[in-house]
Design a protein around this nucleic acid. Structure first.
Lengths: 224, 224
DNA sequence: TAGGCGTGTTAAGCCCGCGTGAAGATCAGC
DNA sequence: GCTGATCTTCACGCGGGCTTAACACGCCTA
């Protein structure tokens, strides 16, 4: 679960972010000024920082410098419309991206995902949890409610690729190439059969997939 | 400092461009015909090329092909009013955009900026955000307000090409060739149908497109 | 004003891709 | 060599995306 720290002094924005991010399965903590923000940063060790530039006690760039002194955690800056200079200064100080207020929640979420993805290049999330099951990539185990789920080798490599590309579309060709080898790139049949098996073992309702989604004509996507 | 090469045989235009572009802090060099233009291109290595189609010694598309042989430097074409055929040919040959003479200096400058921005290395941002939706090229996802937008394979490849060429005019031929293959270059019907579908799914008001713009007689342009 | 051209829109039919079940082939462990 | 598990292969039904054609509309020209 990705941890997000939001430093902002405007209560409505804090509330909106808390609601939306929590709904998106982020773990959210907040701070209302720079000083307590820096403290929370050290205490909570979040995976991303969302920072408003207009704080009451200190300049945004100071906060960034305070953070950048000891960690490279991605920082996304919120700036009011017209704060171009401050925006540039923030990026210079080490911010990763910025969003201009008023912002669309989807835009922010997209940038958040991008920032997190960039920050974890090869560092795999070893375990992924959904409301229905947990995939432990390191231990090669899937736990679902009552107990372990037995997966065959093919099923496992399929699932592993999809999970590692969570929320991203993976092409049929890509899957076939990585699981069976380059010469099997046309055998879409294999995919259908084994994806069906996976759904039977993982999905609450295999006929209405919630996690292993198929994108007609393109491929599959693991969503959580 | 951005370097611009202008290839044009009309002295008044050359002069106007030299004055205006220099005032805008561009570094300007000029050539009066195709042959010396190609030479200057190799010698000066400009960041953008402004090319008049009505050169005395060789056809404009020949110049473009000569340039495209070894560099992807953006090319903006100047065409006289009525040279529709030459314009389309130039774009198909690899030009990035066109401006019709007589042109407003502001329009040219805007297109110039767009062309340079598109060409700068950091431009391969995998996610593009507009006020109404977000296109994530890597994840092959489009998010719009309430949630994901479902796109069919054809719709997606169309959108992908247009987004990768944001602010740049893409000819019908180009689109048809890249989505359906070289033998479909005349089936403009397909384009109309599928662009209509895209607009229905993406535009706030599909009858008044804001992002998927059509350039009558030439092609389409994704604008943000 | 009529006609042509390019474009947008809609609907209908065809065909391909997907899911499913089951049977045959292959392999590992004993 | 036997047995069970796993993978491959095939046939079938179905839904949806692509194609295709017909029509409406605006713009330009004769």
């Amino acid at each position: 679960m990705t941890k997000v720290l939001v430093i902002d002094d405007e209560e409505p924005i804090l509330r909106a972010l808390r609601i939306n991010l929590t709904a998106r399965k982020y773990e959210v903590s907040t701070a209302a000024d720079g000083a307590s923000g820096l403290a929370a940063m050290a205490r909570d060790r979040p995976d991303v920082l969302i920072l408003d530039l207009g704080l009451p006690d200190m300049d945004g760039t100071e906060v960034i410098r305070g953070v950048r002194g000891w960690t490279s955690t991605p920082i996304i800056v919120l700036s009011a419309w017209g704060q171009e200079v401050a925006k540039v200064a923030a990026l210079d100080a080490g911010a990763d991206d910025y969003v201009t207020k008023p912002f669309g929640m989807n835009e922010l979420l997209a940038r958040l995902r991008a920032a997190v993805r960039r920050a974890t290049p090869g560092a795999d999330e070893p375990v992924l949890t959904t409301p229905d099951f947990t995939v432990d990539l390191a231990a090669k185990r899937v736990i679902r409610g009552d107990g372990d789920v037995r997966l065959t080798p093919t099923e496992w490599s399929l699932l592993e690729i999809l999970v590692r590309n969570e929320n991203r579309l993976v092409t049929q060709k890509q899957l076939l190439r990585e699981v069976w080898g380059p010469q099997y790139q046309t055998e879409a049949n294999y995919l259908r059969v084994h994806v069906a098996h996976l759904r039977r073992k993982l999905e609450p309702d295999p006929s209405q997939p919630r996690y292993l989604l198929t994108e007609p004509g393109m491929g599959y996507r693991f969503s959580c």
